[in-house]
Design a protein around this nucleic acid. Structure first.
Lengths: 221, 221
DNA sequence: ATAAAAATTTAGATTAGCCTAAATTTTTTA
DNA sequence: TAAAAAATTTAGGCTAATCTAAATTTTTAT
């Protein structure tokens, strides 16, 4: 096994392919990747060929790309780095949950398994990052979440907020202003047919949230 | 003032120029830089021109290069990052002092003054890194060390070890095996004329160390 | 003070990652 | 199912950072 040092760019491609194939569970298209990575489709084609040479992806011309076992393990390891650094930033350096993504995006590429293992221990082996996303273990095992969007919940159900689908700073700040946090108990009081908004109750106070919001809040019963 | 995002490479050039000009206090030569950065002189010429365009260095063809005020502040800020990360790695993640250099070399390039300020606070505003090197403050002020090489000490003097000149892993491991640490009290018992070795006493035990070692141990009285 | 040696710069390539424009393949639609 | 539209790839270029080889300048040594 050749220990191939990957560039930041290559690592970001693997992460993007991982996240897109996770969602659709089929080969990832060039255009889709281009959009995700904010580059042109032709650039994707170039890089994907390179990753295929390195046995990190399986690529069939015009058909799309999928991670190999090796590529998947690499992607998961970067995600592990990212999420552990996010925990560090929030728990130890007092960053807010909407401030850590871009920093973790840089830190995730620091190369040293020893560093990550020690960071993991220092943080007491956290299982989830500040947004509720599961942290893969060092062997690449990752919890498959049993959560679902709040949008799916029936009227009258009580659930716990366990994650967010959208980790954008704007969305997280919105949740902050309504005191919506991971772990909060949330009850569906009413669902509006015409715009799919919901009347919900958190901490004894009721208010209405849009479909855009309910789609991006993840709950567990 | 244009906020110029520098590449890792550019940052490393600035650090190298800073460290070489600190030692000699004159313009840094192309060959000298090439050796330090392990590249060819022609590459140095190219990059130095680029840094000059960005007003980070003053460069006169065939005469060498010096940092401008702006370049010096940038270099010092990277050194601050480096040394704070080293403290983190040793104090919080239990790395040994000979293991942290390469990791800090990666971490120092993470871009965020907020991150560094918070790391600084988390570490309780340390003044020196694990090798005894002073940590610049956020304004770029850096302690000028009053230390000198042990090699200069007279027979009979008692001093405290406050730093190392050479932070290579091999040298630091050597010091570990002889239980030589920062803060240790060291007494010069004897100096050998023919090879400049010294007989010294630390913690009541006496042994001899070579000139190579005494040159690289920094002391204060 | 000039010739030889050393240091430095210039010229011309190379690689990674990206781009635009044109060509090709696949998918959609009528 | 064939023409139009969409997706994808190819071809050819660009920039950053490096290299080698050749040219130039500075320094050293006689």
């Amino acid at each position: 096994m050749v220990k191939t040092e990957l560039s930041y760019t290559e690592e970001n491609y693997l992460k993007a392919i991982f996240s897109l194939s996770r969602k659709s569970d089929t080969a990832v298209s060039t255009n889709h990747l281009a959009e995700k990575l904010d580059t042109k489709p032709s650039s994707i084609t170039d890089m994907v060929k390179k990753l295929a040479d390195k046995k990190l992806v399986d690529y069939v011309k015009y058909k799309g790309v999928l991670l190999t076992k090796k590529g998947k393990l690499t992607a998961i390891s970067i995600i592990r780095n990212h999420r552990l650094w996010e925990v560090f930033l929030v728990d130890k350096l007092d960053f807010k949950w909407d401030e850590v993504h871009d920093l973790a995006e840089q830190l995730e590429h620091i190369k040293s398994t020893q560093l990550i293992d020690r960071l993991d221990a220092f943080l007491n082996h956290p299982t989830h990052d500040p947004h509720g996303d599961p942290i893969p273990d060092k062997n690449g095992n990752i919890e498959l979440r049993m959560s679902e969007p709040l949008a799916n919940a029936e009227v009258g159900t009580n659930s716990i907020i366990v994650g967010v689908h959208d980790s954008s700073s704007d969305f997280l700040k919105f949740l902050d202003t309504f005191k919506i946090k991971l772990g909060s108990e949330i009850k569906v009081i009413q669902k509006e047919k015409f715009d799919n908004s919901m009347l919900i109750e958190i901490d004894k106070s009721q208010f209405s949230i849009s479909h855009q919001v309910t789609k991006n809040l993840l709950i567990k019963n």
